[in-house]
Design a protein around this nucleic acid. Structure first.
Length: 533
RNA sequence: GGGCCCGUGGCCUAGUCUGGAUAAGGCACUGGCCUUCUAAGCCAGUGAUCCCGGGUUCAAAUCCCGGCGGGCCCGCCA
């Protein structure tokens, strides 16, 4: 058990007899104490009894002290005791270990049509997905990430035909041009869709081959952001393996007919599964995909833009008809520019690669300004790390449902709540450790205030991960990384390490604990650490 | 028109699920800290009708109802 959890359990254990005696076990609340009130608060305001102050405060021992103030009991842990528990667990790694949950989880994210390079609006999906993936893995799920590749349907056929007509060189442009004049291409699109729909392997594989080249553009950008996938699911597979047919079969009792098209009524709306030309829809294939997910995984998580809320609701409605329920969404709001939603036509699209480039360049300029002592190679390495980390951090730090209005200054701000702040604290710690070398100094067992504060922050790691995993809130990890860094910076100011012969052994250990914790935290955010900044 | 999401100092956000002590941070601004482990840092300060109006409650940023403002969705598209 992790130190803070252990302490909390002890508090509960100690309190239980008293709570039982007064019959108020379920009328109290226990939560983290607000600043300056200790570690834990037991809130008695709902309990309508007068509890003896002496009785409570008599629970104090050498591990923790109890204090009753009005309707609150404030518990403060003994600094020395707790600090060394945390320090030890961080050094031996148990602080970062979670029990295996024995749960197979799939996270599907990104899944963008490969019609062009990723833009900033869309990459929020990838960053949220990848971060949650990392958090789940740490938390003990058996997790996989998957990209669902759309290789069938109207848009894809338009992309394929468009590039045939106007060339692959600038495929996004070819696609757009073709799409604009789509009315005149109806027949060839339908012909191709039917070919795909019939499960024509040769045709489908040829399409995939071509799409893979475009998809690669997306994957390169993601690779730079330290994002990759365990697997790819091709939409057309569900045609080839007959799943789509089976789905339609399975759902036929619920379906109505409208001029040859088939739909399932929902409220006063209709969910179409088959067109009147007998081809399937994205929705139909998505049902097949999710049935497969449901069979192979205990939980499947879909990372979806807010524009997919209705789609997801309908999907769940249909899946519930056949008793499938283990699918969970993470919805996020789009990143928009001041001119509104990003759109190629409006010319306000910001591509991820441009943002990365801009961010890396700014980082580089900043490093050159403050470090003359490092090689060009190192400068490039560090600025790449900082630049890409900044992109991730500045997107993940917002809670997913919060709309983000993109602003270059805001996005590339390197101070305060941003990646460089956090990475900088890490580099400072490493630098001290390197200078300390392999010292053999005894651990001074007296912890002072600032050391205890940093160690408490370190000790929060498990509860932060649990909270982030259970609520699917990756932003909480970003916030924690900032608070941890901030705590270290204060420690750095108040607690000299190398020049303090009495405390050096203990403080080097604390630094090691901090470094491990920060490395774990940044890894969850997909950020690669740098020893120098 | 209907449904969903967002609204917290000048700007950006956390807190809202699970109501409780002085609303917590960042940016910007003002002042201070580098002969001492990396100043992308630290300290101090200014700055908030928690969108508005009702309601529930001993207690509301948090729960309920009604507005207002912004976003998204309402295709035999994906």
């Amino acid at each position: 058990m992790h130190p803070l959890e252990l302490m909390e359990n002890k508090v509960k254990e100690k309190m239980l007899p008293i709570l039982k005696k007064y019959g108020i076990e379920d009328k109290i609340r226990i939560y983290k104490a607000p600043k300056n009130f200790g570690d834990l608060t037991i809130d008695l305001q709902k309990a309508d009894v007068e509890i003896d102050k002496q009785e409570i405060e008599a629970l104090s021992d050498n591990e923790m002290s109890f204090k009753k103030v009005n309707k609150f009991i404030n518990v403060k842990y003994n600094d020395n005791k707790l600090s060394f528990m945390i320090l030890e667990s961080a050094l031996d790694g148990t602080l970062f270990n979670f029990s295996r949950k024995n749960m197979k989880v799939l996270i599907e994210h990104t899944s963008a049509n490969p019609t062009g390079p990723l833009h900033v609006g869309r990459v929020r999906n990838s960053i949220i997905g990848d971060t949650v993936y990392r958090i789940f893995k740490k938390f003990g799920y058996d997790v996989r990430s998957e990209y669902y590749v759309n290789d069938i349907g109207t848009q894809v056929e338009a992309l394929l035909l468009g590039t045939e007509l106007y060339g692959e060189e600038n495929y996004t442009e070819s696609y757009r041009r073709y799409y604009e004049e789509i009315d005149s291409h109806k027949n060839e699109i339908e012909r191709n869709m039917k070919m795909a729909e019939s499960g024509d392997r040769e045709f489908i594989l040829k399409s995939r081959k071509k799409l893979e080249r475009f998809l690669n553009d997306v994957l390169i950008d993601l690779k730079n952001l330290n994002i990759s996938f365990d697997s790819f699911a091709w939409e057309s597979d569900f045609i080839i393996n007959g799943d789509v047919k089976n789905v339609v079969q399975m759902l036929s009792p619920y379906m109505m007919d409208e001029g040859g098209a088939k739909y399932i009524p929902v409220g006063d709306g209709k969910i179409f599964l088959i067109r009147s030309n007998s081809t399937s829809l994205y929705f139909t294939r998505d049902v097949a995909y999710h049935i497969q997910k449901s069979k192979n995984y205990d939980i499947s998580v879909d990372v979806l833009g807010e524009d997919h809320k209705e789609h997801f609701r309908n999907l769940m409605y249909v899946l519930n008809l056949i008793s499938i329920k283990n699918i969970e969404p993470i919805f996020y709001s789009y990143v928009v520019t001041k001119e509104g939603k990003m759109s190629t036509r409006r010319g306000n699209v910001i591509y991820v690669r441009d943002m990365i480039q801009e961010s890396v360049e700014r980082a580089k300029a900043e490093i050159i300004k403050r470090r003359q002592d490092i090689s060009d190679e190192e400068i490039n390495d560090i600025s790449f790390k900082i630049g890409t980390a900044s992109v991730r951090f500045n997107i993940i730090k917002y809670s997913p449902e919060k709309p983000i209005t993109f602003d270059w200054e805001e996005a590339l701000n390197f101070e305060g709540e941003a990646a460089p702040f956090v990475m900088y604290s890490y580099a400072r710690a490493v630098s001290i450790l390197n200078k300390a070398g392999e010292i053999e100094a005894p651990l001074n067992k007296n912890i002072d205030q600032r050391e205890a504060e940093l160690l408490r922050e370190i000790g929060r790691f498990p509860e932060v991960i649990r909270d982030a995993a259970e609520h699917k809130r990756p932003d909480r990890v970003a916030k924690y990384s900032f608070e941890l860094a901030s705590s270290f910076n204060q420690f750095y100011r108040d607690c000299p390490v190398l020049d303090d012969k009495i405390n050096i052994g203990k403080r080097v250990s604390i630094i090691k604990a901090f470094i491990s914790t920060m490395r774990e935290t940044l890894d969850l955010l997909g950020i690669k650490t740098s020893d120098k900044i």
